[in-house]
Design a protein around this nucleic acid. Sequence first.
DNA 1: GTCTATAAAGTGATAGAC
DNA 2: GTCTATCACTTTATAGAC
Lengths: 205, 205
Amino acid sequence: MAGSSTLTKERILGAAEVLFARRGFDGASLRQLTAAAGVNLAAVNYHFGSKEKLVEQVFRRRLDALNGSRLEALAKVNGRDETRLEDVLAAYIRPALDLSNDDNGALFMRVLARAFAEHDDSLRQFLSENYGHVMRQFTHEFARLLPQLSKSELYWRIDLVTGALTHAMSGFGMIQRKSGVSEHQHREQTADHLIRFAVAGLSHP
Amino acid sequence: MAGSSTLTKERILGAAEVLFARRGFDGASLRQLTAAAGVNLAAVNYHFGSKEKLVEQVFRRRLDALNGSRLEALAKVNGRDETRLEDVLAAYIRPALDLSNDDNGALFMRVLARAFAEHDDSLRQFLSENYGHVMRQFTHEFARLLPQLSKSELYWRIDLVTGALTHAMSGFGMIQRKSGVSEHQHREQTADHLIRFAVAGLSHP
DNA sequence: GTCTATAAAGTGATAGAC
DNA sequence: GTCTATCACTTTATAGAC
């Protein structure tokens, strides 16, 4: 555990995020990746054990924080007297947009969208085991706020909304905002769009 | 142009669809692919020129028919006195669900969802050059039916709806329908869900 | 049009010097 | 912890026999 160990790991994780977003998990080789990170080829196996473990760490580094923020925001919303659907959706959406505001964070959202579209069993299992409880908690909240919907109807709508949001957020970092609009305003406008869309998709008659 | 040429090509295209859906364009090798098709390794390069050209043909084989059906259905809708938003959406959605009803067609929808999530430039350019006119025509129709929306608002909503539908349709083939529900009923129920969701997402106040 | 054989380059992973 | 060198394969693509 020398001093530069964590630095090297961080450099690898950063480069992996960029290259996995651009070329996919199979498309990005360890050679391209270590070259971009400016570290030795052998460093990936030394620090992470294998390419597959590296992929998992790329997710872990961002999702621990992202899903933590989401649950924290959800808890705050639930503490209030009356819970509104749009506040629950904001608790899901806003942390992701905050992350997308950072350049590398935006690339991570693209990596996440890839994982969503790929039906890779081992990756899906990893995500479900480690972060499945987050979607379950939100689903529980949606069910409480939309009691008129049957279980199957609710699952359909959540699936559709999740698909829409994942796609939209994976492209958020790429949208150029008009000059004269601050980063903060841009994020607020986007959040508004997504939340209103999701409310309509979930609660239409 | 011997007799078995088209048969071999078709076998390769079929196997490619299955393996690209399961393992991605990079993840599926020509060796796995030709083995699954029961043809010689060299056949891909002989018949298609390269792996990249094969990928394009996989899309072409399905998208020519799929997008043709969509435009045909859209033309029928426009021929009527009063055009309803849900009929335009049905023209977009129903041909895809019909395709998903066939096993291999359902796998193709997963391939399409992958292409949607991957931000691969050359593939996006191929799709945009060959099939961009379809989305433009639907967009034009949406704009006509939703004159109250600003251009940017409309594009946002179309992007969100497209993301939702692509995701949902890529999973359609995997949903097991309950016994006692015919394939036809299952498709109609799904179409209803998707269309009502899309109407709500596009036209909410 | 289909086959084998092989070229040329790339892959993840590891042993062992420093 | 980092390096070079290398192992053991796999990859796409092609030349040339049939």
